[in-house]
Design a protein around this nucleic acid. Sequence first.
DNA 1: GCAAATTAATGATTTATTCAAG
DNA 2: CTTGAATAAATCATTAATTTGC
Lengths: 185, 185
Amino acid sequence: MEMEGEAGVVVSGGFNAGRVGVKCGRWNPTTEQVKVLMDLFRAGLRTPSTEQIQRISNHLSFYGKVESKNVFYWFQNHKARERHHKKRRRGSSPDDEAEHQFVISPDCKREAKLNHRSLSCFSEVEERVTWLERPCRDIETLELFPLKAYDLEIEKMRSTRTTTTTEIKELSFFDPPLELRLSFL
Amino acid sequence: MEMEGEAGVVVSGGFNAGRVGVKCGRWNPTTEQVKVLMDLFRAGLRTPSTEQIQRISNHLSFYGKVESKNVFYWFQNHKARERHHKKRRRGSSPDDEAEHQFVISPDCKREAKLNHRSLSCFSEVEERVTWLERPCRDIETLELFPLKAYDLEIEKMRSTRTTTTTEIKELSFFDPPLELRLSFL
DNA sequence: GCAAATTAATGATTTATTCAAG
DNA sequence: CTTGAATAAATCATTAATTTGC
């Protein structure tokens, strides 16, 4: 069981994630994979949804082995470390400021229930509004990959409730392994 | 779609989690569910593994609706908040000190690679050894629920590699819904 | 007694910190 | 020293207790 098969289209040189025997090391993204992730990040994507992660993972798997959790972790770490680095270097190039390009639709605002608590958060610290800019569908990102038929269906499903109530999603696609993920995003 | 059916064996009085219509609120555990979780916690369980969570979830589903993520969150929260409360009340009753009752087998120690860092963690703060007591199969916990046939198989599978390398597990059992979770534990 | 308003608990997310591979 | 992976801390948000005015 667990045939490697090597049906992938390994491109990069530093690609070693193709099963390391018994004890599998950590994921080592290829150059192309990093490029794609970077592009997405600089396009403004910070906290991809479950479907987005799945789609990104699918796309990246073309360049080499990757799992959903890798994509998840990558965004977590990159987001956090970008902030840290920003704090250090005071004169950061304006190039890095590609965030907040997501619109906050009135619907999202309504969903967010702008009560006293939310308002205070919003006006106090600017960095605490992430929960406001996330619920809205970040359209740019999704367009980066060709939407397959069922993708559109999922889109429709999603549009019915754009709330932040993270739901469990079934991910029985043709991703790396049959992968499972909790509604962590 | 989504028939309630009410085939469950609702026992507790304050049980309202049986589907709240369109917008499903958050999980509201029954008294029995809380009791079981409390028992496990006081037995020493702090960070259940994927399989454990699945098993616990299965067990709890007898008393009412529950998902794996609820169990996961419950332990996260309870663990964190127990600490907080301990800090407040200096003279805590010794009753609360039911932790560290898991044995640390030599195998686990080997797996944990006791290098300088680990050792310092171990000797410095007592609470930082969680990663040491977790990898070992916490037998007490597992025994609390009747092991079904396939559970034993899983046990055998697990015993082959007790490393902390969290792996993705397929959870296509007869849990609440077909649930998915990432290797977060 | 009882609902609306307020507060306390706690379920669910996000962010920060830490560990460890390469 | 960089960064993938994992855990802990902080925070948001919803539900139950509790209070309050009638």
